[in-house]
Design a binder for these strands. Sequence first.
DNA 1: CCCTATTTGACATACGTATGTCAAGTCAAC
DNA 2: GTTGACTTGACATACGTATGTCAAATAGGG
Lengths: 341, 341
Amino acid sequence: MKPTVHDIAREAGVSLSTVDRVLNGRADVRPKNAERVKAAVRKLGYVRDTNAANLAKKRRYNFVFVLPEGPSSFVDTVAAAVREAADAQVTDRADVEVRYVNAADPHAIVKCLKSLDLGQLDGVAIMVPETPQVRDAVAHIKSAGAYVVSLVSDLPNSRCDHFIGIDNFSAGQTAGALLGKFLRNETGSILVTTNSMVARDSIERRYGLDEILSRDYPGLTALPTIEFHDDAKRIHETLERAISEHPELRAIYSMGSGNTAMLDALRDHAGDKNLVVVAHDLTSVTRQALVDGGVDAIIVQNVGHLARSALRVLRAKCDDIEIYEAQEQIRIEIVMRENLY
Amino acid sequence: MKPTVHDIAREAGVSLSTVDRVLNGRADVRPKNAERVKAAVRKLGYVRDTNAANLAKKRRYNFVFVLPEGPSSFVDTVAAAVREAADAQVTDRADVEVRYVNAADPHAIVKCLKSLDLGQLDGVAIMVPETPQVRDAVAHIKSAGAYVVSLVSDLPNSRCDHFIGIDNFSAGQTAGALLGKFLRNETGSILVTTNSMVARDSIERRYGLDEILSRDYPGLTALPTIEFHDDAKRIHETLERAISEHPELRAIYSMGSGNTAMLDALRDHAGDKNLVVVAHDLTSVTRQALVDGGVDAIIVQNVGHLARSALRVLRAKCDDIEIYEAQEQIRIEIVMRENLY
DNA sequence: CCCTATTTGACATACGTATGTCAAGTCAAC
DNA sequence: GTTGACTTGACATACGTATGTCAAATAGGG
């Protein structure tokens, strides 16, 4: 039988009320008694039954997810995963709201963060680029007693409670290693694309790629990163030019969003080059490309895991419970046609 | 506010007792009233608060894991993961016991399964090969009202409630695709090894490998599977012979346990062949081999996920709650040095 | 040693559900 | 319409914890 507060009270030789006051820090307790209670807790190995406590408190957790708005199939998959995870947890005292902001507009982000009802709020998961304003807004939320986790892209200078996502430097390394192994005895160059290099994930991935290539695969050269800011026409032109100008081109690494247009353009211009293609994030587009053979491998962060992990971590923070690190580690997955799920 | 049994009673115009009798099937209730209650449940969208119910019932879940004994680093990692997951869940009303059996001896397995205290038992997770005797033992446990899930290797003919593990055919396909892509423009043969082909996972992996190679990579030939039944000397001899007899050898696929000896032998005999090596399961040995470069990629089923999933599924079954499939899907992960965790 | 401020204990109520008891209600068959 | 069987409702108690009230106990200052 697990010990209860009653057992603690008996063991410590104090009343239930006193135990409660110590455990919940509710009033002044004479140091001697407080120490007795703590000793009893240690001795009996008491752990509070969070479920019973939440029941008594009528506790509900109010969480908000702030995601970037605008057309992005990856964000869509994240949003869907959040909603699904929230539905599955709704029996578990958590209310989850999803809000969208223009992630390119720091002012809009801050406005959204400021508009949160801090009285009700227990935690926020945010997926936006870090700016000084965002950093301040995070600090403000935290000072109101709510918890903040960053999702997908880290906010290293903000005082977040946790980062839920992959290590993008390692992800870039992984891409580099895949490309290196796929092009085992070949030499040549790799075209690197992303939608925008302002997001820190792209930057980190690029660093990781370069590091691995120069260390382990010196025969492969990564070309300068091409950014195409949601501009399909530009992608077509750039890709066409790159292919004709670089006869030694062997592979393409698509680091960020914008896979749809990139893959379309590739189909048009690749010809018989038989390029190796590695991209990020599993969406309907990349999924289809895997099946068609247009992409060799996708580097994935499982969005279901992201969403559930964010909820679990926020809850653990609220309950002041330790995080079960092994479970919350988001892995860099490599998905090919054969292990597609 | 979520509706409670009180709301149901009011809505249905019956007493709390009657609601309880309907929800828990505890006595005969006149069909008319039963239907009213059910209608109220539907109308208000009532879902039982499992935590409160478990509290009232003093419910504890008794689960047993039956794992193969004997030296296997993979099983060791599974066992460790089970213990860790059980510790993390101990606050959550679950008591977990791990038992070991000689998996090669169907009689011993059955003896172990028969020795379970069916009165206390809520569920079992078993990781053993399927035999008719095992199938009967599973049926016996189920008829006593406990739930059974199979772990790692499926028991397709037993009436298990769930299978927790990867699709081994797809895992073999994944290995084939990896090898095919790593050996992009090359032709040659692949040495396939396992400890024993009696375990159905090895058989399925081999099928998957063959299918992909013949379909997508006709230039690559997989040699007949070599089994080495825990015999290090045999591995050395076989590997040495294979390397000298097959100058066209390009790669090695280690499908099952026994990676330690295989990798040792490989170091001794590979010479300057620069073989591509793909193996299964992340253990201290394969982990080290990844870091050293002795192995190119490992195909992994995350043991932490296996253990937690087994526990969640067993609980869900006990509570007659639907399984959250997306979360319980065990993925076939590909791990290289760069995304090692 | 007394007074006061602080600390403590006893008790009640609640959360949502489970379960038992017993009296009262309802129904069908005679 | 009475009997007996079945069905229902009211009530009490419990699970482990939270929280409030109030009286009693205690400690410290004078």
